[in-house]
Design a protein around this nucleic acid. Sequence first.
DNA 1: TAATACAGAACGATTGTTCTGCTTGTAAAG
DNA 2: CTTTACAAGCAGAACAATCGTTCTGTATTA
Lengths: 228, 228
Amino acid sequence: MSASAHLQKAATNQNNLKPAGAGGVRQRQSLEARHNLIEATIFCLDKFGYADTSIARIQDQAKVSRGALTHHFPSKEELVIATIDSLLEKLLRPSLPSKKLSQTDIVADLRWLARNITGTARGRALSEVLMATRTDKKLSARVSARLTDWNTKLDEAVVGFYASPNGDDDDVRQIWMIARTFMRGLILQQPFTPDPAQIEQAINRFGTLIAPYLETRKRDGVDDAKPL
Amino acid sequence: MSASAHLQKAATNQNNLKPAGAGGVRQRQSLEARHNLIEATIFCLDKFGYADTSIARIQDQAKVSRGALTHHFPSKEELVIATIDSLLEKLLRPSLPSKKLSQTDIVADLRWLARNITGTARGRALSEVLMATRTDKKLSARVSARLTDWNTKLDEAVVGFYASPNGDDDDVRQIWMIARTFMRGLILQQPFTPDPAQIEQAINRFGTLIAPYLETRKRDGVDDAKPL
DNA sequence: TAATACAGAACGATTGTTCTGCTTGTAAAG
DNA sequence: CTTTACAAGCAGAACAATCGTTCTGTATTA
């Protein structure tokens, strides 16, 4: 039932109703199918956009039958919501970044942020869905709580990494909210400014705008996930 | 043919092939029908989003027959492009703002900018189309030139209003490009931050971030349109 | 009189959902 | 350890509804 229980390569044990370990072959295949469908949905959202992401396209991409798709996700809305859950989960705790946080260069962190929001299929897929939630009230009603929760968690994580020179944590939260907003806006600005170099310069300039108001906190060795 | 020649309330003369003035009754009605359809398209884009903006919905909203619609716009793509032209034109030269430029308060100008991008049906409709151009390559190919041109014009207008303390006009352009990007991002950030007060605070804070790098130029009396 | 402006039916293609079968893993019964 | 019963997993046809486009026919104006 839980859409967020998946993806474990080893599939050692499911913390489901049954506490017993070693989920059966059946469950394993099922979770794998779900995972494939979600990944296919992300791919289609990124490549074709929300408007042209049909379930026919998704099942083609995932190479599963129509029956299998409708079995795991009885409606398109269920599939989209499961996809959103997957996106949020992965974006909050991304696979350990190759480089640790720069600790000194905020602009480098901003570039990492930009890549996560506009530079990956997952980030762009999320943007497509976010845009859709604006007008799709049914979808919005089902995911808005998740989104605000996610945003709050993010704020908490950010405060763990950065501090304000004047000690106001709320300002740190606000600055990073502005940063995220700016990064999301890049997707909509790109049609106007197709030159990647210009985009990168803007990111760098934005970094100089917010840098005076942020200090990196001393890290305590734990290689926690980066905040978005 | 030119999709951008329309909307004139008085419909005095068309700078078309025929230089002769006083367009006939026929042409007048035709232009009005086109205008109605474009306005209906904007309405639907804002209310239903790009994905759910069908030509059936548009013709219902415009209260015209299917035949009339297909007569003026033989394909949906033509209608969308004409709508984009209309949006850009109106957003570049908006109807004379009630208040003149504040001349001193940059934050007030930013609020005006925010309203134009995220606070009006036209702004939101444009965002919907911008998002669609990301994946719709056919549409993108037909409007990208228009968008970049529009952006360039905007940059020129901005430099006419603002100056950099160190005299670098390019920095003014970049700062305002960042501002526009931030405003566009608000549409995608809203699902995370539904509280309007928080959005407004973020806009104000953003204003304090860029204010040190902008000076308002002395105006020469001309009440020109505001830059976006 | 001839092109323009429009009305509306008809088109095939595609949308998302529902439905009927068939296979297969799994847990209980013998 | 078998055997059996049953639900889960899945394949694919059928569904009405809607998509955008094309077509034929009629009225109006230049």
